[in-house]
Nucleic acid binder design. Structure first.
Lengths: 350, 350
DNA sequence: GTGAAAGCGCTAACAG
DNA sequence: CTGTTAGCGCTTTCAC
C-alpha cells in the first residue's frame, strides 16, 4: 500500500512562509484570498504552496475563527424518498456555498436526535437544518437557539412556530385541493388514509381533507378515516380496510405518495385498477410518482426545492442572526395523472 | 428570538478547572473518560461542567490530536434507493462508533467528486467511504491513500483492486444465478436490459448473464442486449424495444431493481402482466422490490448491510493502517417473487 | 503591504 | 492521581 509515512505531517503555512520568503501572516492573507495581499506575492505564495503539497487545515482555522464550515442536516426518515430529495437539494446548495454537510438520520428516534444535535454542537456546526423526529418536544427549537446554533426547521413545525425559521408545505390547502379534485370528478364517498394521531403534518392534511368535504356539502363518515402507518405496506393493508367498508368509497386521498403507491400496488394485486375502480391521490410528488402504474395523481410540494430553500434560509440566518424568523410555505400544485381519472381520460402524465 | 448574546463564548476547561479547584489537565482527563482520573474528582468535575453549561470543543481537540471524528461518505446517486440504503447502514454504524458522517453526493460528476474529496481532506476526515462516480480515474484510490486518508471503496471497484479495501457485490455470480433461475423456469429467449458501456458493474453483470446462457446451451442473440439508462424511465422505454423484437423474448434480467420496476410499470400500462406475459428479474433487492406490483424477483445484495460492512472495514483500516487490504464481496441471494413465475405459482413474497 | 506576537481550546509529556 | 508546560496550525491585531 503506497502511503506517506504516517509520522510526516504535511507542510504548514510556516513552511510556506519560509520557502516563499514572506511571513506567516502574509501566507494566511493569500490563502484566504484577502485583497490586502499584493497579486505578485500571492502568485508566488500559491505556487510554493502547491509545490510543497500544502493542504489547508480547516480545523485550525475554525478553532481560531470560532466558527466552522460544516452545517448539519438532520432528517427523520431516509426510507421516504421525500426526505432524500430534500436532502439532495439541501446538500447541493450548501456544497455550492462552500459548506460541507454533516448528515444525520434519526429514524424517528428522539434519543438519536438528541445525540446528533449534541454532536453537531460540539462540532461547532455553522448551523443546522432539522426535520424533527415524531414527538419532538415543542421547545426543541428554542433550546437549539439558546445554544447559539443557527437553525432552520423543515417539514414539521413544532410549538410556537413564529419564533424560528421554518420551511415546509401548506398541508391544509394542499389536501383541500386534492380532495376538491376528487369531488370535481364526481366522487361523493372519499376516504383518507393516514396516521390517526401524532404528527402535525397528519393533522394538517386531515383538516384540509375535512374542509374540502364540508365545502362540497359532503357529510364525512368516521369510517372513511383509515389509520395506517405512512409507508408502502401501510397503504397496502389500509386498502383492505377500505374495500371492506359498507358503501365502499369510490376515491381515496392518501397522507403521502408512499401510502398511495402501496394502495396502487395492492389494487393491482387484486386485479383492480386505480382510476377505474378507485380514484387514488397522493401527496408530495416524489420522483417515482410519475412512473408508477398507473401514474399517480398527487400534490407537488417540490421536496428538492424545499431542501434548497431551507439551505438558503439557513445561510441567511447565519449571516444575519438577528433578523426576524421567516416562514416559507410551499403552495402544493395538483398534478393530475391517471390514478385519479377514468381510464382513457388521462389528463397529464408529467 | 431567545439567544445567548453572541459575544459570550461558552466556558472552557480552564473555567471548569478553576471552578472545581483542579487543573486543566485533570479536567481534560475526566472529559476523555481516562482511567487516570479518580472517580470522586471525576464526579465533581462533571457536575461543575454541567452546571456551567460547558460544551466540549471538538475542533480544538481534533487540532491538538491531529485527527478527527468525522468520516466522509461519498455516494454517486442518491436517486437510487440502493445507495440510500447503503448510506443508512454506513451512517448507523459510524454514529454508534462515535463518528459523525460528512455526507456528500456527487450525482456522477467527477468535478464535484474532486471537490468533496479535497474538502474532506482539508477537514482532516478520519476516513472516507467512496462509491465512485462513473468514469473515475483508476488511480483515484491510490491518490487518496497517498494523502494518508483511510479509504474504503464501495460498490464499484477501480483499477488494481487488490491495493485498497473494497466492499461490493459479486455481480458476475449474482447475474448468473438470476439468469439460471429463468432458464430453470423453462425460458430460452432471455433479454438483458442495462447500460451497454462504461461501468464495471455493468460489465460484470452482463458477463454473468452471458455465462449462464452459455452454460444453459443457449446461443445469445445480440438484440437481446438492450442498452438503457439505469433508471425507472430507462426500464420503461427499454421494454418497448424488447416487445418490438422479432421472436420476442419471454424473460428479461435487468441491470438493477430500478430498471426492473420501470419494466413492471410499463407492462402494467400496456395491459400485460409480469410473470405471465414476461418474466422479469431485477438486481439489488431494494426495499420497495417486495412491494411492487407484482412483487419483484431479484438478487438480494443487502445494500444496508454493505454500508455497515464498509463502515466496519473503514474503522479497522483507521485503527490499523498497515494491514493488508480487504475485499468484501456480498454473495447475492435469489429472492423469488411473482414477477418471474407463472401467476399462481408464487413461491415467496418475502 | 508585510512582519511580530499573541492566542483560539484542547491534549500530552513529564514531574511530582 | 494531579499540576506544569508547551504546543497543534491558523488568524488577527498592531506596528512598521
Amino acid at each position: 500500500m503506497t502511503k506517506k509515512t504516517p509520522t510526516s505531517h504535511g507542510p504548514t503555512i510556516h513552511d510556506i512562509a519560509k520557502a516563499a520568503g514572506v511571513s506567516k501572516s502574509t501566507v494566511s492573507l493569500v490563502l484566504t484570498r484577502s485583497p490586502l495581499a499584493k497579486p505578485s506575492t500571492a502568485a508566488k505564495v500559491l505556487e510554493v504552496a502547491k509545490s510543497l503539497g500544502y493542504v489547508y487545515n480547516r480545523s485550525a482555522a475554525n478553532l481560531r475563527q470560532r466558527n466552522s464550515n460544516v452545517v448539519g442536516v438532520i432528517v427523520n426518515d431516509l426510507v421516504n424518498p421525500f426526505f432524500v430529495e430534500l436532502l439532495i437539494g439541501a446538500e447541493r446548495v450548501l456544497q455550492q456555498s462552500g459548506y460541507i454537510t454533516l448528515m444525520a438520520h434519526t429514524a424517528e428516534s428522539l434519543a438519536t436526535q438528541e445525540k446528533v444535535l449534541a454532536s453537531m454542537r460540539e462540532q461547532n456546526a455553522a448551523g443546522v437544518i432539522l426535520s424533527p423526529a415524531f414527538d419532538s418536544p415543542s421547545d426543541l427549537p428554542e433550546r437549539i437557539q439558546e445554544w447559539g446554533l443557527p437553525l432552520v426547521v423543515a417539514v414539521r413545525s413544532l410549538g410556537d412556530n413564529s419564533r424560528y425559521d421554518f420551511v415546509g408545505s401548506d398541508n391544509v390547502t394542499g389536501m383541500r385541493l386534492a380532495t376538491q379534485h376528487l369531488i370535481a370528478q364526481g366522487h361523493r364517498r372519499i376516504a383518507f388514509i393516514g396516521r390517526k394521531a401524532g404528527s402535525v403534518v397528519s393533522e394538517e392534511r386531515r383538516s384540509g381533507y375535512a374542509s374540502a368535504l364540508a365545502e362540497g356539502g359532503i357529510t364525512p363518515r368516521p369510517e372513511w378515516l383509515i389509520d395506517a402507518p405512512v409507508s408502502l405496506s401501510g397503504g397496502q393493508t389500509a386498502l383492505d380496510t377500505l374495500l371492506a367498508l359498507p358503501d365502499r368509497p369510490t376515491a381515496v386521498v392518501c397522507y403521502n405518495d408512499l401510502v398511495a403507491m402501496g394502495v396502487l400496488n395492492e389494487l393491482g394485486r387484486k386485479g383492480l385498477q386505480a382510476g377505474r375502480d378507485l380514484a387514488v391521490v397522493g401527496f408530495d410528488n416524489i420522483a417515482s410518482a410519475a412512473h408508477s402504474n398507473p401514474p399517480l395523481t398527487t400534490m407537488d410540494v417540490t421536496p428538492e426545492r424545499q431542501g434548497e430553500i431551507a439551505s438558503r434560509v439557513l445561510l441567511d440566518r447565519i449571516g444575519r442572526p438577528d433578523d426576524a424568523p421567516r416562514r416559507h410555505l410551499i403552495a402544493p400544485q395538483l398534478i393530475v395523472r391517471a390514478s385519479s381519472v377514468g381510464v382513457g381520460i388521462l389528463v397529464r402524465t408529467g
